[in-house]
Amino acid sequence: MMTIFLEQILNGISTGAVYAIVAVGMTMIFGVLRAINFAHGEYYMLGTFGGWFVISTIGLPYPAAVIVGVVVTMAIAYVIGRFVMQRMIGMPEEGSVVATLGIALILQNTVILVFGGGYKFFSAGYIEPVFFGDIGIAQQRLLIIALCIAVFVGLELLVTYSRMGKAMRAVSQNVEACAVVGIDVRTVVLSTFVLGTGLAAFSGILTAPVNVSVYGGMGEIITFKTLPIIVMGGLGNVRGTLVAAMILGIAESFVAGNFGLQYRDSVGFVTLILMLLWRPHGLFSARARF
């Protein structure tokens, strides 16, 4: 009984790690822009496609494909950031909702037009399982958990010590004051956006070996899984996002294991509704930051 319990927790953590890397990018972008990036899942998809493309066409090894996927996505995000996201500064929320939903549609359908709508098969990665007693887990999933921790340590260091990180925090607190003291808000927004989408792409390629299939619409579900996490974590809160992602991952795992797979996705949506009703500012802060 204990082993089953532990295994379900492990399943939850491995799912939560994926959510966490995607969600932290989305929450950082919200922090500086006050805008929910509804196209976030599409960058996850772009990264995966980038990785899949170089592996299947020129046979690049997996680690190199990870880098290519992230870099390509960041380049696309730079262009979108430059022409769309920077204009969102100081815009009413409706503007960013429509703009990011539009970008999501464009990215998704461009990929479908270029590569076709069918599922692609992602064959690279480290899918051999390792067994701890009865509990088996793919090496890739252990890698994801380890890299998730690394990403969060890195982000923590970035926002605490680096100049850019401090600027990001400043912009997320008060845009006008930043402008007064000479922080280039536009640059901060652009770099946060490129970093956040790069993380989404990173998560996508990391998960591809265990998820096997790659297709144009794969990002949608990720965007919707990410929403309850960033609300639970407190919008713009990096540490909170990690905890919230793990909570959602583990809760989903228990629901799928005990009630049925068909109820799993309701966990996120029920959480979102409850959070918005009772603690719209997140689990970890007593009052709203924004």
């Binding site: 096997v212 989903e252 228990f254 799928a256 049925g260 797979l261 799993r264």
Partner: peptide
Amino acid sequence: DYYKEGEVDFRSV
């Protein structure tokens, strides 16, 4: 158990 289209995580079940 029933999975929805596009489901990728079957570990728990």
